[in-house]
C-alpha cells in the first residue's frame, strides 16, 4: 500500500511536467498578446511594445518558460500580468469556491440520481423507468447554459427571486451560501444526475442478475433487503468511479456555469486569463486543476480498497 502510494505520487511528476509544457506551448501559439488586448483597437505600436516589455514578454519563450517553471517549483506562481496580483492566493480562494459549487452540484445530482436510478433498475421497463430515463436524456442532451438561463429567467420572472450577489463560503454563512450556489449547483446537478442515474441503473441491473442475489432471493429475503444489503455494496464501485470522474471533470467543466452565474471560481479565472492572454494565470490555473484532478483520481482508487477490501495494491 505504502509503496503503491509513493509510486502513484511519483508518476504525477511527469504528467504535471507534460501539462506545463503543453499549456505553455498552446498558449503561446494562440495569436494575440496581453498588451494589444489590453490596449484594444486604439493602441499604438510603441505602447504595445512598452507594455509587453514591462510584463517581461519580450524575453525568448524558453527563458519565459524556465523562469515560470522554476518559480512554480519554489511554490511561486507569479503575478497576473494585468493586475499585478499574486496568483496563488487567487487560485486557492477561487478553488475553494469552485469546490463548493462542484460538491454541491454533485450532491444535488446524487440525491436525485441514486434513488431514482435504483428505482428504475428494480422496476425496469415500467412507467417509472421510462420517466427516469427520459429525464436522464434531457439532462445529458440540453446544453447546460440553456438550463442555467432557464433557471435564472424562471426564478426572476415567476418568483422575483435572484441569488445573493456576493459569493459567500459555506463555512461562513451556510444559509446565504446555499442561496448563492443553489441555481448554479442545480444546473450542474441536472447534468450530473443524468450520468449517475444511467450508471446506477445499469450497475444495479447487472448485480441484480448475479448468482448471489438470486440465492438471496431464493432464501426468501425481501426485495429491499436485497437491494440495500447486497446489491448496493456491489454496485457502488462503478458508481464511485463515475462520481469521482465527475468531480474531477466538473472542476474544469464548471467554466460555463461559473461564467453564466458570475461565480468567481477557478474555471472563470482561467477562462478570463485565456481571453486576456494572462499567461501566468492560465498556466498556473491549469496546472493546479490538473493536480487536483490527478489527486482526485488517486483518492478514488483508495476508496475502492475501502469499499471492496478484496482489491489490493
Amino acid at each position: 500500500m505504502g509503496s503503491y502510494l509513493i509510486k502513484r505520487v511519483a508518476s504525477l511528476i511527469p504528467i504535471l511536467f507534460g501539462i506545463s509544457v503543453l499549456i505553455f506551448t498552446i498558449l503561446h501559439l494562440v495569436p494575440g498578446d496581453p498588451a494589444s488586448i489590453m490596449l484594444g483597437t486604439s493602441a499604438t505600436p510603441e505602447a504595445i511594445a512598452a507594455l509587453n516589455k514591462s510584463m517581461g514578454l519580450d524575453q525568448p519563450l524558453i527563458n519565459q518558460y524556465l523562469r515560470w517553471i522554476s518559480g512554480i517549483l519554489q511554490g511561486n506562481f507569479g503575478v497576473s500580468v494585468h493586475t499585478g496580483e499574486e496568483i496563488l492566493p487567487q487560485i486557492l480562494k477561487r478553488f475553494a469556491i469552485t469546490m463548493q459549487l462542484t460538491v454541491f452540484g454533485v450532491l444535488i445530482g446524487w440525491v436525485l440520481a441514486i434513488p431514482f436510478g435504483i428505482l428504475s433498475a428494480i422496476r425496469a421497463h415500467s412507467k417509472t423507468d421510462i420517466v427516469v430515463r427520459v429525464f436522464t436524456l434531457l439532462g445529458i442532451s440540453v446544453p447546460n447554459f440553456a438550463i442555467g438561463t432557464l433557471l435564472l429567467l424562471g426564478f426572476s420572472l415567476y418568483f422575483n427571486w435572484f441569488p445573493p450577489i456576493d459569493v459567500v463560503n459555506f463555512w461562513e454563512d451556510p444559509i446565504e451560501a446555499f442561496k448563492v450556489f443553489i441555481l448554479p449547483a442545480t444546473t450542474m446537478g441536472i447534468v450530473v444526475a443524468a450520468g449517475v442515474m444511467r450508471m446506477t441503473r445499469s450497475a444495479f441491473l447487472e448485480t441484480m442478475d448475479k448468482d448471489f442475489i438470486r440465492t438471496a432471493r431464493a432464501k426468501g429475503n425481501s426485495k429491499w433487503t436485497i437491494v440495500m444489503g447486497h446489491a448496493f455494496r456491489n454496485s457502488s464501485i462503478p458508481i464511485v468511479t463515475i462520481a469521482g470522474m465527475q468531480i474531477g471533470y466538473l472542476l474544469g467543466g464548471s467554466v460555463i456555469v461559473e461564467q453564466l452565474f458570475s461565480i468567481p471560481g477557478l474555471g472563470q479565472y482561467i477562462l478570463e486569463g485565456i481571453y486576456q492572454r494572462d499567461y501566468p494565470v492560465v498556466q498556473g490555473g491549469v496546472l493546479f486543476v490538473a493536480l487536483v484532478f490527478v489527486l482526485v483520481n488517486l483518492l478514488i482508487d483508495l476508496i475502492y480498497t475501502w469499499i471492496d477490501p478484496r482489491i489490493k495494491y
Binding site: 508518476s11 511527469p14 504528467i15 507534460g18 501539462i19 503543453l22 499549456i23 498552446i26 498558449l27 501559439l29 494562440v30 495569436p31 471533470y249 472542476l251 474544469g252 467543466g253 467554466v255 460555463i256 474555471g267 482561467i270 477562462l271 485565456i274 491549469v286 486543476v289 490538473a290 484532478f293 490527478v294
Partner: peptide, 21 residues
C-alpha cells in the same frame, strides 16, 4: 502518460485553447 496529460486538462478549456490557436 501523454493521455493522462490530455485527460487531466479541463476539456472545454483545452478545446477553447485549441480553437483559439
Amino acid at each position: 502518460r501523454c493521455m493522462d496529460v490530455l485527460f487531466a486538462f479541463p476539456e472545454i478549456l483545452l478545446a477553447l485553447a485549441i480553437v483559439a490557436a
